[in-house]
Design a protein around this nucleic acid. Structure first.
Length: 198
DNA sequence: AAGTAGCT
DNA sequence: GGTA
């Protein structure tokens, strides 16, 4: 039983769709290379990130925020049509997302419990797509201290966090590296689409 | 004394 | 996934 507002579309993308999406994301990564950024506390994150869309999510010692340009001054690449199609199918939101955040989990990468709270529009859901190696996903409640539970997210799964769970705490405990044949170098790709409205 | 996209 |  998932919290109210969280929907898991198990196996939403078949193998063909997963391959097509990975191909489109390769183009994103070529224009805006994923990099391991610094959290405001100065620690380098294990997950490498980049973005597509009108704005991209960045972090450094100045804090978390959305920026209209990459560090090198170039705009972010457009959000691939394959990703927008998923958003339109599952988000229930009228407009398209402003940002696609692309996270690459190499072997050993993980992400601590956090909330997606840097957007200006919390009525719109966050749509998360998993590709490649499986991840042990942890989900809590609206308060940091709320109890958590975990389950596995597999390649092709689409998770929607919206409604009462839009600001829910969540994270990735670990990935099971080398399980999926989808990505040549292994690891996990996660993309999340957000309405930033700022 | 919170708050935590980090660390054990 | 709850502490320090």
């Amino acid at each position: 039983m998932l919290p109210d507002g969280v929907t898991l579309h198990d196996g939403f993308l078949d193998a063909v769709a997963q391959i097509a999406l990975v191909g489109a994301l390769r183009t994103v990564a070529a224009v805006a290379p994923p990099r391991r950024m610094e959290a405001p506390n100065g620690r380098r994150m294990s997950v490498a990130m980049t973005s597509a869309g009108r704005v991209g999510w960045v972090t450094d010692r100045k804090g978390y925020r959305y920026e209209p340009r990459q560090m090198n001054g170039a705009p972010w690449p457009p959000i691939p049509a394959e990703a927008l199609a998923i958003w339109r199918a599952v988000s229930g939101w009228d407009s398209d997302p402003d940002c696609l955040l692309l996270n690459h989990y190499a072997e050993g990468a993980k992400m601590g419990l956090h909330r997606d709270a840097d957007e200006g529009e919390f009525a719109a859901p966050v749509v998360s797509v998993s590709l490649g190696d499986p991840a042990r996903f942890r989900i809590g409640g609206l308060a940091r201290r709320d109890s958590t539970k975990s389950f596995e997210l597999r390649s092709g799964d689409v998770l929607v966090m919206g409604g009462a769970s839009r600001l829910i705490w969540h994270g990735v405990d670990r990935i099971r590296y080398g399980v999926s044949p989808l990505l040549a170098r292994g690891g996990r790709l996660n993309l999340t689409m957000r309405v930033v409205a700022g």
